[in-house]
Design a protein around this nucleic acid. Structure first.
Lengths: 336, 336
DNA sequence: CTGAAAGCGCTTACAG
DNA sequence: CTGAAAGCGCTTACAG
């Protein structure tokens, strides 16, 4: 490793002070244009890299934002959140922030252990990506001395801002599209006590039915996971509806398999629609009609807001809704 | 936000110096056990969080490792690398390091622009995940003043350590498994000029054929991407072999589709085997025989080594091979 | 066992 | 336009 180049090195070579170097490099007033150029020039020749750690200490800012994801969402083949993360990284870089990802183990979640990056003051703000236990979230809300943003879920009675897909509206639209195709017996797949997003999708489905004067049939409500988010086998009802709204593509894919095992073909016997527009929706033999979550818009909003909150922690944003978009594919069919 | 708690706060309350507080919290000698406990106790009561930025400045360590991935590998539905990243995060946390991910755009790659996290001195070491252009890598090797590790590829004539799946050996074994099933006409799918990993997989395939006194047939070599890594349509040969080795599951999946379009059924007409054990290998109707890359072992080794290199930059590790494991599934069939 | 001093590399008032 | 001084919150060598 070569000798370290600091602002002092530059200053010494040009017989000026570090103050001047700092001002020149940060494009602040108080340096003659000639000197500024000389300094910038030398900076390149010497391969000077600013020490962001030193700046951070002075400014009381790390220029890092933490992203916390539960092991539940990151551990399996569930690629959705990790994809969201990727988009976040791109956006954060634009804003000169770095992202630090931490995977929250079930154990630490249960023990209410704060993220390492928080305990070590490595971050200026935190984005919680995907719902955690209410106890854990309450703990964050009570103790955290940092701007926090919930992404892709919200918590009732919470003062913490959140950004969510407008699941309710999207589900309402999606269910309407089935009704317009002639379906009257429509089921829903998902544990509606599990996450706010499944709940809202269920209620949007409910609303569409009510609007067509239909009563949701409890027999058509199939759970897909236990209270801890672990997937369970899907139990088909005795009498089959003509269509299902699945709470996500992954479950739609699983539903498709379960249906096949029982001799039903999608969409000839049963239509299936779902949410997320993830890899699961296109890799099955029959491509699934789904809702594109508009990850990009959601993520851009999220990163912008957390940065704004770092600069002004008092400002509140509340619940921000991002609209999804239905993508019609082969799994939903018009019936008579 | 509450008033900030620092070591000074603790020191003042107990009428000791910050030196003593620092020693107590870092479990260093020179503090009586009684005092140490009192300090630690107070730390909890006041919700003290050490300022890792200050420590970093003093120690000249950020305790961050950068991970650089090309847009090419992260942008599409290619979940492989992002999965690898997730495992890296878990391992890094164990070692008290944080990871900062940066996505390298094609533009920055072409202009040889160094990663932001490097230019801003935010990281102590860099892991390059997935091959970049030779020019970019040479630039890193020439200029970077940090430990660097290549993960999942290597560069010839490079002094930089790398960790790779033993592609050559795995491919050799995989091809042998086809030969043992009676196949004699075996094709290979992949642009062998594109990445070292495709090249090595091709050569392992080659070796297996040679060992059985077979000559690889150029007609059976199908390219899958252009020089920049963009996927292209697969052109099937006039005369079909009885089996294909595809350079990854994603391509195997695509090959399967192409074969279907031309009226061939896997594995009845053609067997297909591939690499990665990714989501693509199990979501197709016919599950694909593939090689599990042992991501965990690869990642654990990688993170351990970069941390060791940060502590001792002189030490060389060379090319480290991690063994893959064949997972037999339905897409490869015994023929007579 | 305990502390005063110095310093990591910056930035921001303040003074000229 | 330029610089001396102070300070961000730690850790380490030195002294007692």
């Amino acid at each position: 490793m070569k000798p370290k180049v600091t602002m002092q090195t530059i200053a010494d070579k040009l017989n000026v002070s570090v103050v001047t170097v700092s001002r020149a490099l940060n494009d602040k007033d108080g340096v003659s244009e000639v000197l500024r150029q000389r300094i910038k020039q030398l900076t390149k020749e010497l391969n000077y890299r600013p020490n962001s750690i030193a700046r951070s200490l002075k400014m009381n800012r790390s220029y890092n934002v933490g992203v916390l994801i539960s092991n539940r969402y990151a551990d399996s083949e569930d690629e959705y959140y990790i994809n969201v993360y990727k988009e976040m990284v791109k956006k954060a870089t634009e804003l000169k922030y770095s992202l630090i990802l931490e995977i929250l183990s079930s154990e630490n979640e249960e023990n209410l252990k704060p993220p390492y990056m928080y305990s070590e003051s490595k971050i200026d703000g935190l984005i919680v990506l995907g719902q955690l236990t209410t106890e854990y979230l309450k703990e964050i809300e009570k103790n955290f001395d940092l701007p926090v943003l919930y992404l892709d879920f919200y918590l009732n009675d919470s003062l913490i801002d959140s950004i969510i897909i407008d699941n309710f509206y999207a589900s309402y639209q999606l269910t309407l599209s089935l009704l317009k195709k002639g379906h009257r017996e429509i089921g829903f797949v998902g544990n509606i006590y599990s996450t706010s997003s499944i709940q809202d999708r269920y209620l949007g489905y409910y609303k569409a039915l009510l609007e067509w004067n239909l009563k949701p049939n409890d027999e058509y409500l199939i759970s897909d996971r236990d209270g801890l988010g672990r997937l369970i086998d899907l139990k088909l009802p005795q009498k089959m509806p003509t269509a299902f709204v699945a709470n996500c593509d992954k479950i739609a894919h699983k539903l498709n398999q379960t249906l096949n095992e029982h001799g039903y073909i999608v969409p000839d016997d049963v239509s299936v629609v779902s949410f997320d527009n993830s890899v699961y929706s296109t890799l099955t033999p029959v491509k699934i009609t789904t809702v594109d979550n508009n990850i990009k818009e959601m993520v851009h909003t999220a990163v912008n807001i957390i940065v704004k909150k770092i600069k002004n922690p008092e400002r509140k944003y509340g619940r921000i809704l991002v609209e999804g978009k239905i993508i019609e594919r082969e799994s939903s069919k018009t019936i008579s």
